[in-house]
Design a protein around this nucleic acid. Sequence first.
DNA 1: TCCCTTTGTGCAAGCGCTTGCTCACCTGAT
DNA 2: ATCAGGTGAGCAAGCGCTTGCACAAAGGGA
Lengths: 338, 338
Amino acid sequence: MRVTIKDVANKAQVSPSTVSRVIAGNGRIGKDTILRVRQVLDELGYHPHHAAQGLAKRTTCTLGIILPRTPDDVFSNFFFPELIRGISTRASRSGFDILMATGSLAQEERESLTRMVRGGRVDGVVLLSSRLEDPLIRLLEEEQFPYVLIGRNDYSASTLSVDTDNIRAAYELTQHLIAQGNQRIGFVAGPANMIVNRDRLEGYRKAMEEAGYPVQNEWIIDGELLQQSGFRAISMLMELEDRPTALVVIDDGVCFGVLRGLGELGYHVPQDISLAAFNNIALSELSTPSLTSIDIGTYQLGYTAAHQLLLLLAGEEKAKSRFIIPHRLVVRESSLRK
Amino acid sequence: MRVTIKDVANKAQVSPSTVSRVIAGNGRIGKDTILRVRQVLDELGYHPHHAAQGLAKRTTCTLGIILPRTPDDVFSNFFFPELIRGISTRASRSGFDILMATGSLAQEERESLTRMVRGGRVDGVVLLSSRLEDPLIRLLEEEQFPYVLIGRNDYSASTLSVDTDNIRAAYELTQHLIAQGNQRIGFVAGPANMIVNRDRLEGYRKAMEEAGYPVQNEWIIDGELLQQSGFRAISMLMELEDRPTALVVIDDGVCFGVLRGLGELGYHVPQDISLAAFNNIALSELSTPSLTSIDIGTYQLGYTAAHQLLLLLAGEEKAKSRFIIPHRLVVRESSLRK
DNA sequence: TCCCTTTGTGCAAGCGCTTGCTCACCTGAT
DNA sequence: ATCAGGTGAGCAAGCGCTTGCACAAAGGGA
């Protein structure tokens, strides 16, 4: 049978309340009592029963995460573990655990979140989302439930969020390609309804405009690169009269697909065309050619998100609601024109 | 304020116990009462408070997972999300959630698990581990806590585990290379203390022996391929008089490193040397050359693990304790000698 | 010496839910 | 008309913990 606070109390010859207070570290307890209780405490290997504690204290010491659905958001897969690690590390530093839910369907996803929130399973939620219209955000707003967004939304400025400055990042990435002598630069986009996609496109456009280089519409292609349709798009792009000499790609994972597609068409990177992408996943360094990428500080993103959420839960006055994690351009072979 | 069972009871003009029984679906309740309560139930959007329910029922409807530590187990990173998805999908089908913990240090990892188990936070644990001597397994055994192992151990045959037949898989993979005309085949290994490593090595050896081809010790190298030392090992291997014409690589992620290393040394795959690996991560298909790999059915692995654990928790008699998920050889460019 | 603080501890209520038991009522067979 | 048995619902205890409040003992100033 599990060892309860009562067992400890009996063995230490005090009342349960005293034990509780010793653990909490508040309340006025005699010095020797504290020592005695502590002794028994780890003699018995006591751990408070979480549910009971939660019930009494009205708090769960748990953060919720919704794992993004696969078909919707394939590429977050590649950096997801790193993100989790950031969140989890910060959380456990405050004694918080992570409750995770998935749903293959939007419906299930919503239900999971509802159960978490209405069921009082978590104190706050980390939402990994950058869809323009996110029903989960709406849900949390309606419930007025504490949450932090990794990414950004356009609902309300007061939403606590942690993000990369994607516009800036894309701007710099494009500038890098320009500095390498590219004038015609294309863009391989992700799902249109993701804000991150919109932002990166914007940064790219800005850099091109500033440099005085026109952007052709045909240079912007859809990056469902894990599918056949992606290959077709790439192939059409390369057949253009004035085809780009470089591409900005929405994500490293997608970039792998682009690289593959180009290879099959007989093109070499970076000799025939340069590539530069985002997220700097672990394998980007190991591909041939290695991928130039924007490192978005994935771990840091998760860590900070958890940190800010915990501050919010602790009732700290939040100075601002939006936090930008610095990114870093990592130049590798795929963009270095010989 | 949260809506409690009492609120529902009041509004439906019944006692809380009746509401509870309506929800549980047991107990003798009048037909019209049920209808009335149901009505109020979703009118108010009631969700039972998880902690309270857990306290009363002595169950948490939660499964625990320990996320493997990074430095220890880098490459599980690549298929981890998929595994989680499998676990989570099965779990949520039974109304279970997933509690996840990390620890960067072995110490923290242990503490997380202890908190989970002793704190009554979870009903069972899914352990992703294949270290030979795993302190976490020991902990769970001591506590006699229900768990399922993804991988296998050598402690006790009664441990519930779900695994790939790694010996067999490695055997087949090696046979494939042999069928391609390779006689001298090397092996790029992972951390020596992982059972999966040992098993795959064994399968490889068996296939070689059966074919009557000798295995040189120098052909078996350590695959810390994300490090410098890995490159050195590869380079030394390739300088051997009787260097292998093919390599079995412990993991796709590592294989990316090998591929990279070989490329830097001026070798081409598969022309100069063939490569074949394990796990079939998403990007294996997209690299150039694409990677021949054993698909271990990652999702299925997670799903089955959760399934068996839930059966165990439900008190079902378990017919056997070890479940093997079928693997599948996926032949791609890296092993096809032209 | 008396009274007012301060200090250390226990009592008991309550967090939201489940469940064994009791009890009132309604059948239908005798 | 009577009563056994079935049916529908509520009472109250209890899950393991926290915490406001009461209270006893000890200390200190007048």
